[in-house]
């Protein structure tokens, strides 16, 4: 009897094939930084969180930031990127860059980073600028000022050299639609 619903099967298959492809990619990507990081002075870590509203013992609602390893649609994912100078010497011109993950929508105004200048790209990191200076051309030929869903890349430029053993972090939020 299940055979009558065969039309759904190809979807399932496609999904698992995609999942396989993604995990293969993940393994490849993980292998690279592990080898590279040992020799470099700056170590970069990315972590994801979400805000969860909880009711405390006093009945008051508190927002707790919890690490996540999975997410349901509607979740606002908070990405925190930590940079750490693992050497004793200073490093200069530090720029941290993160492509907004495919499928997520950047939350305008959510990018933070103490001691950094933040700019954005809407073309995959080829050009950067303040968000209100970036324009996007829609498929129908019209142009509009960049919106959250147009942002492809966020860049934090440290305003001062990173001292030896110093560390800091930057963050932003993106919606999983």
């Amino acid at each position: 009897m299940k055979a009558s619903f065969n039309s759904h099967r190809p979807l399932g298959l496609t999904a698992s094939v995609k999942a396989l492809a993604v995990s293969a990619l993940t393994v490849a990507l993980l292998a690279l930084p592990a080898a590279a990081m040992a020799a470099d002075q700056v170590e970069l870590k990315t972590a994801s969180f979400k805000d969860v509203t909880k009711t405390g013992p006093d009945g008051k609602k508190v927002v707790v930031r919890e690490p996540i390893s999975k997410a349901a649609p509607g979740t606002e994912i908070i990405y925190v990127i930590t940079y750490h100078n693992t050497s004793a010497g200073d490093v200069a011109d530090v720029k941290v860059q993160n492509g907004v993950p495919k499928g997520l929508i950047f939350k305008v105004g959510s990018a933070e980073g103490a001691g950094t200048n933040i700019d954005y790209s809407v073309d995959g990191g080829q050009h950067f600028g303040a968000l209100d200076t970036l324009k996007v051309t829609a498929p129908d030929g019209t142009t509009h000022l960049a919106r959250g869903e147009d942002v492809t890349t966020i860049r934090w430029t440290l305003s001062a050299p990173l001292k030896g053993a110093a560390e800091g972090s930057v963050s932003y939020r993106a919606l999983l639609p």
């Binding site: 999942a19 990315t46 490093v91």
Partner: peptide, 21 residues
Amino acid sequence: AVGTAAGTNIVNTAQATFVDP
């Protein structure tokens, strides 16, 4: 309308550039 397809993997890697000593 129904959200990102279940099972999709959201993949994220950050980069940094710097000038060493």
